[in-house]
Amino acid sequence: MTALRNAGQFRRVAPVCHDIAVGGTQLGLHDSGVAWWAEEQTLVVADLHLEKGSSYARRGVMLPPYDTAATLERLAMVIDAFDPARVIALGDSFHDAEGSDRLPAPYRAFLTTLQLNREWIWVTGNHDPVAPVRLCGECVDEMTLGDLTFRHEPQSGPQSGEVCGHLHPAAKVRRYGRSIRRPCFATDGNRLVLPAFGALTGGLNVMDSAFASVFPPRRFSAFMLGADRLYPFTAAKLIAD
């Protein structure tokens, strides 16, 4: 694959995505948890929460220090597969404001190679309100491209074409007396909330009251992440925690 890319002769076919419309713009949802805007060759990823482990370690909770590596490896795989011209990181890319400063040198180098040859947008989030230090990329509070607006936290009230993260949506279904809970995309056709991509990030059930101001009750869909596909459900099929 890499050889092909270096040869620069082929544009690979992008991986299979589940196409949906957000505010009239076609976006592809991928089972890795990223969104793909083919028209703009733009990859959207939310809530990386890099350096979450070390953020906890600072206050004596020694979580495994492998979360950054795990997240970046998965991100690299996705970037390899899509070869995007632009990447938008939808905020909370680092778990705290000093996270980018703590980023160990090897990971910094690795992340920099991922940024080569493409535009990279850091949208700020509540965990990382400032621009990351010693890293490439442009830092914005929000960004509008075509009919879509990219920001970290969904604004209250109906919004057309808003693509955001922040909520770490997860959905739960029950069958045969067993329940299964997975991260998911959530959308009502106007707005899209992406699942958190980071390795140590949990999820918030889309039936939680926090989603009440984001989607009209029961009038949205969840696309649960599966092993190699997405599983779509209407909200009526989902259960609360």
Partner: peptide
């Protein structure tokens, strides 16, 4: 932090 996530990360790494 979900202990399930920590478990997965530890098992892997």
């Amino acid at each position: 932090v979900s202990s399930d996530l920590i478990y997965d990360v530890l098992r892997q790494h």
